[in-house]
């Protein structure tokens, strides 16, 4: 029952052999598979992390781009508005100037017409007065001298008349 002999040695040999057998045929293959899976999982997790980071960076870039494009759009619209306003102002000013010119030209023309009419009227009146005066006087003196005389008279009278009307 309690014996200790050569079989002790055989048992040790058996144990060592069993250790190598089990290590080679059981433990190493199984642990290899487990470790491989572990590394695979870790790899895919890190891959997922990195692609997540990339996606975040891209998203940020897009958002920035979007924001800047919005700003650019607003700026463009603003510029266009300013330009449009300037053009509007310019056109309006041109139009006003044109209108003013047309009006002033018309006024000038009217004034010139008026003056011309006045002058004609003066001339006619002068000749009428000369004729009347000649009739009154009954004699035809130096027509040219008289003409000058009446002209100066009428000019004075017209001036006083103008001053009075003004």
């Amino acid at each position: 029952m309690l014996r200790l002999d050569m079989n002790f040695v055989w048992n040790i040999v058996n144990l060592i052999v069993l250790y190598f057998l089990l290590r080679h045929f059981l433990i190493q293959p199984v642990m290899n598979v487990i470790n491989k899976r572990q590394t695979m999982i870790e790899q895919s997790i890190s891959n997922a992390r990195s692609s997540e980071g990339q996606a975040a960076v891209l998203k940020k870039q897009y958002e920035e781009k979007l924001a800047t494009s919005g700003e650019e759009g607003a700026k463009l619209i603003e510029e266009a508005k300013i330009q449009a306003k300037a053009q509007y102002d310019r056109i309006l000013k041109d139009a006003q100037e044109d209108a003013g010119r047309v009006i002033s030209e018309a006024q000038k023309k009217t004034e010139a017409d008026q003056e011309k009419a006045m002058r004609e009227a003066k001339a006619q009146i002068a000749s009428l007065v000369i004729a009347a005066a000649a009739k009154v006087i009954g004699q035809e003196t130096n027509a040219n001298a008289n003409q000058a005389l009446y002209d100066s008279f009428l000019a004075e009278a017209g001036d006083s008349h103008d001053a009075g009307s003004n």
Binding site: D5, M6, N7, W10, N11, N14, V17, L18, L21, L22, F25, L26
Partner: peptide, 20 residues
């Protein structure tokens, strides 16, 4: 002398190895 325990251990070793 080869004891029974050694022989049974051989059997166990064989069985475990084949099973593995």
């Amino acid at each position: 002398p080869i004891a029974e325990s050694v022989v049974v251990t051989w059997v166990i070793m064989l069985a475990l190895t084949v099973l593995s």
